[in-house]
Amino acid sequence: MAEKAIGCARPTGAVLGGKPVPEEKTESVPEEKEMTTAKVGSPAPDFEAPAYHNGKFISVKLSERLGKWVMLCFYPGDFTFV
């Protein structure tokens, strides 16, 4: 996986594959547009996001892992206790 160039913006990921927003309506796009709610038995929402792995900063894309089992684990924060 290619190393990722580092900028100063707050690092975050983006959900992929959402419905494209019609250009003429960009003024009042409801926030829910990016809501792709995860359900069992349904496709996992794809995303691309920056990550740290083995000493490098990389970009991770979920759909690049098709063909493999993936365990996606969310947790509240680094340096917390549980």
Binding site: R10, P11, T12, G13, A14, V15, E34, M35, T36, T37, A38, P45, F47, A49, P50, A51, Y52, H53, I58, V60, L72, F74, Y75, P76, G77
Partner: peptide, 25 residues
Amino acid sequence: PMVADGAGHLGRAYGVYDENGGVNI
């Protein structure tokens, strides 16, 4: 890989983002 989700986009998509706390549960 340890993924960064600063804006909570991933957490929202998976229904685990806590809007008040600003973290993923």
